[in-house]
Design a protein around this nucleic acid. Structure first.
Lengths: 193, 193
DNA sequence: CTTGTTTGCCAACGCTTGTTGACCACCACC
DNA sequence: GGTGGTGGTCAACAAGCGTTGGCAAACAAG
């Protein structure tokens, strides 16, 4: 024990190493997916020994769990002009995807790894669906509309950031918003067809 | 040599084995992605020795290349009422995704594996973009619109068939068409925003 | 200075992977 | 009935993986 027993954890000398591992892991997982991102490669990037990864995160699975902590972090949607929902949401998602690599990681891994897709479904269910409920009273309908929004937003992220289809990657952010916002707007506010 | 030297290849006794390997590989790659679909597991499913895979397909990479032979197989779009393009295309893509597993394989692998995403970009460039050109004269614009269509169609396939988001997977095929067709229609025929 | 804990490296483990080469059984043909 | 290619199995290889335990240095506390 470190003598002192405060309520929150005391800062440790190894915190910088912990952070270095986490940073390297984020990049490797985002770039290579779960299977090909090896503990050895992550450790090499972080400039430490592979055994340190096990010491601080228990296992590769544990390290991965620490990496995929996602907060979609919506603005307060109830304050927004309902006619601008599409623009606001698409803009927000683009920022989210460009801000850091965690969503890319989650998508890459969610496609091949069961625990990854579990996590994605969980994010969808606990963060996107509740947001949709603010505008769609019927719960089943809200789920469906959230899924439609997810399909368009994830699809654009897929072709733009992961698969890097030329035309999709080259579009300006404003163009993406201009094209996608009406779609998302319709999925949320239009009457069911 | 097999004595005879016809123009096309003579049928071989091993053709059934070749086919068994290919079938097993399709399923394994679709279910597990490239890295976790092992040659050994594929061979076990096909009921033969792993070394046969190497004999007939050279390497795991060669087997994979034989698996991902995709034909989007569009109907003749020039015969279609331009106002029904969205409905026709979305319906066609849904059939494609439900007919066999090859597209699921390609998406799963394309997300983690560079040669997989190469192949996906190639399918996009040689099959989807040319189809779009039938309706969009400007080549750069055709590319962009094809990318937008791809984003929505691949996104729906992602949440419905790969990630299996409940609400997306539970929608009837008609509902999917009804929701997505206007989006695709707009991406192809609407004026640029 | 001594003692105990933390931080880190090193070497190895057991296992699985893709891949290879030796070897046997079959079938066709002369 | 040999003979030569073809179809198939088996055992092994080298390499890479996640993971473990031991040990040395750095540090903190007394």
């Amino acid at each position: 024990m470190t003598g002192e027993m405060t309520g929150s954890e005391a800062p440790r000398r190894s915190d910088t190493t912990r952070a270095a591992i986490l940073d390297a892991a984020k990049e490797r997982f985002a770039a290579d997916g779960y299977e090909r991102a090896t503990v050895r490669a992550i450790a090499r990037d972080a400039g430490i020994d592979p055994s340190m990864v096990m010491r601080y995160y228990g296992s590769k699975e544990g390290l991965f769990a620490a990496v995929i902590d996602v907060e979609l972090d919506f603005p307060d949607l109830s304050e927004i002009d309902p006619d601008r929902l599409g623009v606001v949401l698409v803009t927000h998602f683009l920022e989210l995807w460009e801000r850091d690599t965690v969503l890319r990681t989650l998508l890459r891994v969610g496609v091949t790894n069961e625990s990854g897709s579990d996590r994605l479904r969980q994010v969808f269910g606990t963060q996107l669906v509740p947001a949709a409920r603010a505008f769609v009273p019927d719960p089943a309908d809200a789920e469906r509309r959230a899924a439609l929004v997810a399909s368009q937003v994830l699809g654009m992220a897929l072709v733009r950031y992961v698969l890097k289809f030329g035309p999709a990657a080259d579009m300006s952010r404003d163009d993406v918003v201009a094209w996608l916002a009406p779609t998302v707007q319709r999925y949320i506010t239009a009457e069911a067809p």
